[in-house]
């Protein structure tokens, strides 16, 4: 009887698995490109294998180190800045008693998370352009216009800043959930013992959400090579490649614009492997220390 039932479950998963086979598993064979000299006429099944030549060539490209460093530094700055502001925001919001105010603020700060980077990019370009409102305001203060999206010094900061703008509210949701989980009697007890707001924050609130903070930072480890492809693709230009070009944008340009399939695949594969290792470590740590399970 039980065996007959499971047939239905296999059937329910059949279309999903067919799509996974076509669009996730089959492309894995395409990774062979990273070790081949690609011959478009023969395809990946007929091209010649050349060992690690593509990887050797990759490390000889002068810009490759810059690209990896840009990726890493933008991603790490994003993680730290977003988590810090999200935490501060959650702590402040937690102090608000007025439900209407609370709800309104949340409605506003969650919104940018749902808007695409094409639209947000259009807005950022408008606001930060040479004759945009920010430069207009700086002009009133006697500061000459700054080309935010065209200067290597400003670009990473703009990327991190606009990412924080989009995500800090949404990232605060988990902190807010953790804050409501703290037992109110702890605050009462601390209050009776004479602890003021600050002491309550330090000795009740922070220990209460410490696990959440550590868990989120651990899980963020997976993202240290994800600097925000869609965001950067919508904001960067050749003038800021030096500080704004990241692995994903490089793979896109080298692969689909310059048609260096093998090189682009090799760079992408290197990133995927490092990411896989990071994800494994981060899940291992998260499950060991915070009992985190994804399924």
């Amino acid at each position: 009887m039980k065996k007959r039932v499971s047939v239905h479950y296999h059937l329910m998963l059949l279309p999903t698995m067919a799509l996974v086979a076509a669009f996730s598993i089959y492309p894995l064979f395409g990774l062979m490109l990273a070790f081949q000299e690609f011959n478009p006429g023969k395809g990946i099944w007929g091209s010649t294998f050349i060992g690690l030549e593509n990887f050797k060539y990759m490390f000889e490209i002068p810009d490759i180190k810059t690209i990896f460093m840009n990726t890493l530094s933008i991603a790490v700055m994003k993680i730290l800045a977003t988590q810090l502001l999200a935490l501060a925001f959650a702590l402040l919001l937690n102090e608000v008693k007025n439900a209407v105010f609370k709800k309104s603020i949340q409605t506003i700060v969650y919104l940018p998370h749902f808007i695409s980077w094409v639209l947000l990019g259009g807005i950022v370009i408008n606001v930060l352009s040479l004759d945009g409102i920010v430069n207009e305001a700086l002009g009133k203060l006697g500061i000459s216009p700054i080309f935010f999206l065209g200067s290597n010094g400003w670009f990473p900061g703009v990327i991190v800043g606009t990412h924080v703008w989009q995500e800090f509210g949404f990232s605060a949701i988990i902190y807010l959930a953790a804050l409501t989980g703290i037992n109110p009697s702890l605050y009462e007890a601390a209050g009776i013992d004479g602890a003021g707001r600050l002491k309550q924050l330090l000795y009740v609130t922070m220990p209460g959400i410490a696990t959440t903070i550590i868990l989120l930072l651990t899980l963020d480890m997976q993202n240290v090579l994800n600097a925000g492809f869609e965001q950067i693709l919508n904001l960067y230009n050749p003038m800021v490649y030096q500080t704004g070009d990241i692995i994903d944008t490089y793979v896109y340009r080298a692969g689909l614009k310059e048609l260096q399939y093998e090189l682009a695949t090799a760079v992408g594969l290197l990133k995927s492997v490092v990411s896989l290792i990071l994800i494994t470590i981060s899940y291992f740590l998260a499950s060991k220390f915070a009992n985190y399970r994804i399924f």
């Binding site: 698995m17 996730s24 089959y26 395409g30 490109l33 896109y252 692969g255 689909l256 992408g268």
Partner: peptide, 22 residues
């Protein structure tokens, strides 16, 4: 088994070029 296959596809993929060629 199904679960692991799905999670694997979430954390490791062929990447841009192999997917495009597919």
């Amino acid at each position: 088994v199904y679960m692991w296959v799905l999670v694997f596809t979430m954390i490791f993929s062929g990447g841009l070029i192999p997917t495009y060629l597919t």
